[in-house]
Design a protein around this nucleic acid. Structure first.
Lengths: 252, 252
DNA sequence: CGGTAATTTGACGCTAGTCAATTCATGTGG
DNA sequence: CCACATGAATTGACTAGCGTCAAATTACCG
């Protein structure tokens, strides 16, 4: 992919010093936004200025790199990102893709250094929450703890889902499941669920699914051949949702 | 395997009503035991009687079943357990094995019902902590929160590790990595790390590693052939740790 | 000691990886 | 606005590794 990898400096992001940003009031994601609830909460006074709805950042921006000291967690407002680890033998492993409302950084919970790197896949806006602030908030009340735990549980479930998908699944099954996952997550974030835009490369998808890039191409081809989806480069239309679901769950 | 699956009733486990159990004072795992710290903590009075170091329970005991309302988390003191999910098509997926000091139930965090089933692989003793009590404790102080988060982070890391292992790994590599993982975890729990006892069946191992049982047999055979390990049924000796590590990290 | 389940071993086929070539998309500079 | 360059994506041919089926052997438990 070879994106220009700009650094993301936490400072000078155009975040307001005090008070809730106006942007939050207009944000369509407030329902499922943990940072905004940080502001709403009774703990407001201790947390004001904590949430920084940043200005849009370009594709290729590095939120953080594996091994750096862990500073903050992030929440996606618009756009998308990918996370990846380099294992001990230098191989890159795509661990996840992040869409609006997703929390970024759970893998680095209680770790001194980030366990993975995160890069924006397109022009995106994010909210940044310093780790200590989030921990404090989680202790402040039962409802805040609940919201925080819910986000963590989501990350854990995503991790499990990704793993189960690798267990006993053919290439077509994995690809079908991948498309459905994106579809559902977009739906949950209030988007159209039948028209997908794959902001990541085929190589990223392949790596994420434990397959070769060529296999992704062929699987897309087969799915299109059978009329279940329509492939137009990075744009994918889900034509037959139920059929796709059947494929995701069938083969072994 | 077809173990007699006895139910585990939470009640009448021989747990003392008040005060810390004497068993805890003698327990070799206190250092890494979260339940015991629940007792030690400043929150002691609110949590007394919370931790129930149970009497040993036989192999095949079901701690809980997928779909049941989530009551408690568990911590392994002696023995071992496995967790597994049944996916929408009826297929069983082994999600993890639990050894002394491990926390059981993180996958069901913030879920109304257990997301998986857990069965003991041998005669074992466990500590049970009701979910609400643990959540309360996690809010009570920064150090308690830290301990709790550390356990959750361990579960998350284990999940990741299991997933990365499935990514770009040959059968031999997965098996080697699996043995090393057990070895390290036993070591962390204060046991001998070169002599493994595999309390789970070959089928469980295979499922856990996303392979066929026959492939596990063959991989063990190859590893023994090359003098890296010695296989004696369920007992495995690691003869050449570094060589095993090299295998776990090599192939693709 | 017998019966059952677990494990090992063997033979074979299929799926997906690899290598290689081609087409397509994207972005750049004239 | 077009030609070109570069990387992404697709397609094809071939191969290796693992799954599957089946049989033999071993371990386990009453």
């Amino acid at each position: 992919m070879e994106m220009e990898q700009r650094e993301f400096g936490g400072e000078g992001n155009g975040a307001p010093a005090g008070g809730r940003n106006l942007a939050c009031d207009m944000c369509r994601l407030r329902q499922s936004c943990l940072p905004d609830h940080l502001n709403d909460d009774a703990t407001r006074h201790t947390l004001l200025g904590l949430v920084q709805p940043g200005v849009p950042m370009p594709r290729g921006t590095v939120l953080y790199r594996q091994g750096e000291p862990r500073r903050s967690f992030y929440f996606v407002r618009t756009g998308s990102a990918k996370s990846f680890q380099i294992d001990e033998y230098g191989r890159e492993n795509i661990m996840g893709f992040y869409l609006p409302t997703d929390m970024i950084g759970v893998a680095s919970l209680e770790q001194a250094d980030y366990a993975e790197s995160v890069v924006l896949l397109e022009r995106s806006t994010l909210c940044e929450v310093p780790a200590e602030a989030l921990a404090t908030a989680a202790r402040s009340s039962e409802s805040m703890q609940h919201r925080f735990f819910t986000k963590m549980a989501q990350s854990f479930a995503a991790e499990r889902h990704a793993r189960v998908r690798l267990h006993h699944a053919s290439a077509d099954e994995r690809v079908a499941d991948f498309l459905l996952e994106l579809s559902q997550r977009l739906h949950a974030a209030g988007r159209v669920e039948s028209a997908l835009y794959l902001s990541m490369s085929r190589y990223d998808i392949a790596n994420y699914l434990g397959l070769a890039a060529e296999t992704i191409s062929r699987a897309f081809g087969r799915l299109q051949e059978s009329g279940v989806i329509a492939v137009k480069g990075k744009a994918i239309d889900i034509l037959e949702g139920p059929a796709l679901r059947a494929i995701a769950v069938r083969n072994g």
